[in-house]
Design a protein around this nucleic acid. Sequence first.
DNA 1: TATGAATGAGAGTTCATTCAT
DNA 2: AATGAATGAACTCTCATTCAT
Lengths: 220, 220, 220, 220
Amino acid sequence: MGAVKTKRMPRAVREQQMLDAAVRTFGQRGYMAASMDEIAELAGVSKPLVYLYLNSKEDLFTACIRREAAALTAAVRAGVRRELPADRQLWEGLGAFFAHTSLNPDGWSVLHLQARTHGEPFASEAAAMRAEIVAFVTQLILAAAREAHRDPDFPESDVVGLAEALVGAAEALADWANATPGVTARQAAATLMNFAWSGLGNLMDGQPWTPPDAAHEASG
Amino acid sequence: MGAVKTKRMPRAVREQQMLDAAVRTFGQRGYMAASMDEIAELAGVSKPLVYLYLNSKEDLFTACIRREAAALTAAVRAGVRRELPADRQLWEGLGAFFAHTSLNPDGWSVLHLQARTHGEPFASEAAAMRAEIVAFVTQLILAAAREAHRDPDFPESDVVGLAEALVGAAEALADWANATPGVTARQAAATLMNFAWSGLGNLMDGQPWTPPDAAHEASG
Amino acid sequence: MGAVKTKRMPRAVREQQMLDAAVRTFGQRGYMAASMDEIAELAGVSKPLVYLYLNSKEDLFTACIRREAAALTAAVRAGVRRELPADRQLWEGLGAFFAHTSLNPDGWSVLHLQARTHGEPFASEAAAMRAEIVAFVTQLILAAAREAHRDPDFPESDVVGLAEALVGAAEALADWANATPGVTARQAAATLMNFAWSGLGNLMDGQPWTPPDAAHEASG
Amino acid sequence: MGAVKTKRMPRAVREQQMLDAAVRTFGQRGYMAASMDEIAELAGVSKPLVYLYLNSKEDLFTACIRREAAALTAAVRAGVRRELPADRQLWEGLGAFFAHTSLNPDGWSVLHLQARTHGEPFASEAAAMRAEIVAFVTQLILAAAREAHRDPDFPESDVVGLAEALVGAAEALADWANATPGVTARQAAATLMNFAWSGLGNLMDGQPWTPPDAAHEASG
DNA sequence: TATGAATGAGAGTTCATTCAT
DNA sequence: AATGAATGAACTCTCATTCAT
């Protein structure tokens, strides 16, 4: 079951093996249901060695979150060419995002499900990474407005709401693509671009969807 | 701390007290970290009574999920007038959704976080409710197409992707609204309508955002 | 080995059984070497019940210290008639002390050895009891001075030193009597009265302090 | 924190460094709470080297006890001039004893607390040293009797009891002096001489044993 | 002479669950 | 309808100790 027992590895290598095993176990079993015993066995080492190197279950989980968060943001960053127009940047970023989450489902589960579900200090770690992405998307939206020669008349706090919505949609589609056979990363990205850009495009043109006002609603 | 100890209640009432306590505890502590001891104390009864009525921790959690799922879908359904046009239905549904999640944060946490995080059989329970909502949204999108006298030329599976994205965006905005003071349910709904409908509106008009083809991309 | 398994005892009774087992185990094995498993088995219950009632190893040990300290000081107090002259009070107190320590060697080990050896919060608990005894002895010495119509010309802090010495001598003789077959509590008390009251200098002059014989005591 | 890492020391030197670290750690943490890790780090060497030289935790602790016992008895012996009368020998011995224990609190804790608390084979090691001191005191008492031209009419076993009491008093005063700021070794010795030699009875009559003043002592 | 890498064994603690009334 | 008494099983974490170099 576990990894082949290769003896006497240098510490740095062993640590990565342990993190690999931990991400897999946390991602599949969940943080609380994962036992240090199982992680150690999957890593091919004894439990005390895990504690010697990673200190505690909390620290181990935190290390997993950080590693996976760094890997995800790095993948997105590496996939985006900043010299392109905003919509092209978003397209590339989404493609990189869906590609990464589909290749690293356990890491994605750690970041998106486990870290957010089990309170502090984990939630904050995951929230930090998410905030980074939301900020990036926010900048893209503002850039798109500039490119369309529009000084957006809505306040930046509204833009954050839009970015939150877009990121949330991406997260949901990542789960959906992972769970639905036959949906590729590219298709997920295309669906989300259709949904988000055609919508945002209209917004940029100053034609938001208008809510019915309350008075009208009451009489309607 | 816990409920006042009132003795000899009829079973149905006691069960609701227990479910109240359980939803609160599961929502705040998480499924695994919540202890039957704490739930029983918060419900104001002894532990054996919880087992007598709800059978096991799994069954108790499942009962929570079902109750909260039913409550959420009922709230949304009750908030929507089916005779209205699709966009107005969506607006009303989102308003009801955000109102409910902001008034029931523990129930929302149970459904959106806890149930999805702790494997079977809970994930399926939550997925069933979510599928219902996604189906409703899918129907709304198709209805909107018909209202615009468009026979959508994209397959229904694509529509499901759009619905998934919309629902994901709604979930994220619910979390965001709950976590951000000063964001009301109505504002969240307006933000999402802007994002989703202006976008979907464009789609309905046959003007999707077009991905650059790969050959072109390599040369660009 | 362990106590007979008597089932379904009221909590108060079980707690005493647990404390009995704990004092015995801590006294013989030492605080750290004693395992909760062993204590539970000796008490005839399962480990979780020990934790349910006594909370933790620390709390259990603290409870032992308190119980044994209370028992020891109560025994000494009960053995002393306050209306007697100081030397007679000391004689009675020492008799009661040595009798108690010889009948409760495990409790004495807990108080004198284990509690002092394993840091806070245990040391303070034991020190509190010891301070009480030192204070009692200090009062006896001052009373003796008054009885001899002497206003002692040395400061009270010096008296505390003398009391410390006397208590230390008593502690050592308790260990010695417990370890040396054939040395009774009464003999230990007589030795210490000789040492402490008459003083070695007087002993050399052939004037030992004379214990009142038992017959006389009964009538007095 | 730990010792400076100087490499390639001769074995004898390294062993002393280890024993220094071990005495300090055992004295402060206690035998069981002290970890070989901490001792090795404090000694500035790796754990396997400690095992290579000292063999096991038990052997290491035994070596500590022996070294500290030898140091204490040597200090007392070196402080006593055998040609003096018995009371002066006692005075000098106590002075040396209190001086040593106050300068070596960790060693004293190892001998007086730790070694006695953790069973065999440690208790026996400490008991051997203590027996030596008790024997020395016993001889002093008998010598005092001879000097007073008294053939003590009580059996030698009684004398042993007196010696035990005196040693116990000294031990307690050593702890007391270490724990009470402002009490010097000389004061502790004076208090004990008063207590032990003149006797409380004599003290009441205003005839304390008088320590020879320092000037006289230097010339004598 | 000296150490980085590694572990078997066991500790304290917690929890879902049941029995007897 | 309701509970005080009780536990099997599992968990995180630590430590003395050894191997291979």
